[in-house]
Amino acid sequence: MTEVASDPLFTTIMKTVSNLAIPFLLFAIVLTGFVRKVKVYEVFVDGAKEGFDVAVRIIPYLVAILVAIGMFRASGAMDWLVALLSPATNLIGMPAEALPVALMRPLSGSGSLGIVTELINTHGPDSFIGRLASTLFGSTETTFYVLAVYFGSVGIRRGRHAVAAGLTGDLVGVLAAVFICRIVFG
């Protein structure tokens, strides 16, 4: 699997598909609509009208989440959390340096990218820590941001078990990243 996926050919194919996906999609949708006698311009404008409302509806949710996370980061509480958790992560073979990436990833995309960049800069991109940090960053999304935007857009305040499910995914993502990096980059 490593051999295939690291192959620049795989990357080239994926990039080409990504570049062509949007033009193809626009072409297919507009053409099908036109052939099926949809008044494409009028319908487009009608749908686009909602864009503003959706964006504005997200604001309170996004403010709530980003403010709490911003305060948490600025307080330096992350260092305490790292100190608290590092004995456990040492046991599974995860270097303490990489722990802040795993903890920050669900909270803040730019914050975790900053940590990854710093780690790569300090330890080198091809060091174990550099590779693990890169894998950690690429392995999951910014859970709380996605939650605020997606639920906020339809006015959902009660998420039930959504956070728990998302964080469980993040946790397993971290464990899987450590596991696979140990095997591949040992």
């Binding site: 699997m1 690291s6 999951t140 499910a165 993502g173 464990l175 990243a177």
Partner: peptide, 19 residues
């Protein structure tokens, strides 16, 4: 720079199935 693609796919697939 691309060598983390395969490890990333593995980790993100595990995370997604788990979630």
């Amino acid at each position: 720079p691309f060598e983390i693609i395969s490890t990333g796919i593995f980790a993100s697939t595990c995370a997604c199935i788990t979630a």
